[in-house]
Amino acid sequence: SLEDLFASLNRHIERSEFEEAVRVADQVLSISRGDEDALRCKVVALVKADDVDGALSTIRSSKSPPADFRFFEAYCLYRQNKLDEALQSLKSQERSSATMLLESQILFRLNKMDACIDIYQNLPKPKIESVEVNSVAGLVAAGRASE
């Protein structure tokens, strides 16, 4: 049943068996076409299995992609180093911590350090030290380490 398939999918996710998760998500989708939970699981599992190309083509072949797929798409473009395309995609999205982090990472790669730092300084108070690490990396790269 669909419930059994989702239980199996959930088990694979918990065990970080991402390729298996993709296989079961496909089984769900063959029964329940366009199922958003299965589609979302498939895209995330493909990213976690390092199949960014597969994730992107899954996103793009989905008939009515849910809103958060836009973020996944921008992330995949970033991973493919299609930085301008990724930025364009982000600009059409509602701003969140996730979109801001991704935007700052793209700007870092584009060597636009001042813009990159600007985003870090506008992020909601860092909950994790890693945000500080990236912010400092930007400052160092911009020759503004004293800040």
Partner: peptide, 21 residues
Amino acid sequence: NPIVLDLAYNHIDFPSLQHRM
């Protein structure tokens, strides 16, 4: 070279499947 961590990756999350099982 300064290292930038891929923090955006942490925002690529699985949905909760509790209500589907």
